[in-house]
Simulated assay, not measured.
Amino acid sequence: MLRILSPFSFLYQFLFFLDRTLTKSKRIDGALVISVGNLTVGGTGKTPFVQHLVSYIRDNHKDYSITILSRGYKASLSETGAKLEESSLPSEVGDEPKLHKETFPDVQVIIGRNRFDSFYKFNSVPKGKKHILLLDDGFQHHKIERDFDFVLLDANRPLGNGYTIPLGILREPLSSLKRADAVLFTKITEATRKEVTLLGEVISSRFPGLPVLHSRFSAKLNPSEVSADSFLVVTGVGNPEFVRKTAVSLLPGKKIETKFFPDHHHYSQEEMISLLSDIKPNQGLVTTGKDWIKWKEFPSFLEKIKELNVSLFLISLEVEMEEKERFRILLESLFSNYEAKISRGENRL
Rank of each mutant, 00 (worst) to 15 (best):
M1K: 14
L2Q: 12
R3A: 09
S9C: 10
Q13N: 14
Q13G: 10
F14D: 06
F16G: 10
D19C: 07
L22F: 15
V33P: 13
T44I: 03
L53T: 06
I68Q: 02
Y73H: 15
E79W: 04
E79F: 10
L84I: 09
L84N: 08
G94V: 10
V107P: 15
D117M: 09
P126W: 05
L133V: 13
Q140C: 04
H141T: 05
K143I: 00
D147S: 04
F150R: 03
L153H: 09
D154E: 07
N156I: 01
P158V: 00
G162L: 01
I169V: 12
L170C: 04
L170Q: 04
P173W: 00
L174A: 00
S176K: 15
K178Q: 04
A180R: 06
A182G: 13
T186H: 07
E190L: 10
G200C: 00
E201L: 06
F207E: 11
V212D: 12
S215I: 03
R216P: 11
A219W: 14
K220G: 13
V237E: 02
G238S: 07
G238F: 00
P240K: 01
E241Y: 08
K245A: 12
K245C: 07
A247H: 03
L251D: 13
E257I: 00
F261P: 00
H264Y: 12
H265D: 11
S274V: 09
L276Y: 01
S277W: 12
D278V: 02
D278A: 08
I279N: 08
P281S: 07
N282I: 02
N282L: 03
G289E: 14
I293C: 14
W295R: 00
E297P: 00
K304I: 04
N309G: 07
F313E: 04
I315W: 12
S316T: 13
S316P: 02
E323H: 08
E346H: 11
N347K: 11
N347P: 13
